[in-house]
Amino acid sequence: MATAEIVGDGLRVRFSRWERIAVWREEITVPLARIRTVEQIGNPLARTRGGRIGMLVSGVVKVGIWGLGTGTRQLVSARRSGPALRIVLDGGEFGELLLSLPDAAELAEALKARA
């Protein structure tokens, strides 16, 4: 499962060893200034759209890059159960992050306070 934390003026997301294969990176750091909205969501698996590069276990987990051909690329590390965040970004490689995180509520509040 991915982890996320605020480090300085950025949000750093680190991926587990097996997730790294699907997202093609060990971590990503997004400047807080690029974060437009943060919302805690249920059923993050239903929020992906378009083509993908990554791993899909239908109804269980999605990890990779979604949104190919839609204009908004999504970096996804989502599971069917547990809390998740949808983070909409302004510019850059990805337009959205969809992340299942054990501390989603706390991180959402911290991000909203810093925005």
Rank of each mutant, 00 (worst) to 15 (best):
G91A: 03
G82R: 02
R86S: 14
S77G: 14
L68K: 10
G69R: 07
A84D: 10
R79K: 14
G71V: 05
E93M: 02
G82A: 07
G64F: 05
I65T: 08
R73S: 11
I65P: 07
D90I: 02
D90K: 13
G71W: 02
V63L: 00
K62M: 05
G69V: 04
T72Y: 14
T70G: 05
A78H: 08
L68N: 07
V63F: 06
G71I: 08
L89P: 14
G92H: 03
V76S: 00
S81Y: 02
P83H: 03
V61H: 02
R73T: 11
V88W: 06
V63I: 15
V88L: 08
L85K: 00
G69P: 12
L85E: 04
V61M: 02
K62C: 00
G64S: 05
A78L: 04
G67Y: 12
R79C: 14
T72S: 14
K62R: 12
K62G: 01
V76H: 09
G67E: 04
V60T: 15
G67F: 06
I87T: 01
V63E: 05
S77F: 02
P83S: 12
R86C: 13
R79G: 14
S77N: 15
T72D: 15
A84T: 00
R86Y: 13
P83W: 08
S81N: 00
G71T: 03
S81E: 12
V88R: 14
A78D: 09
R80P: 08
V76G: 00
G67S: 07
A78W: 14
V88A: 14
K62L: 09
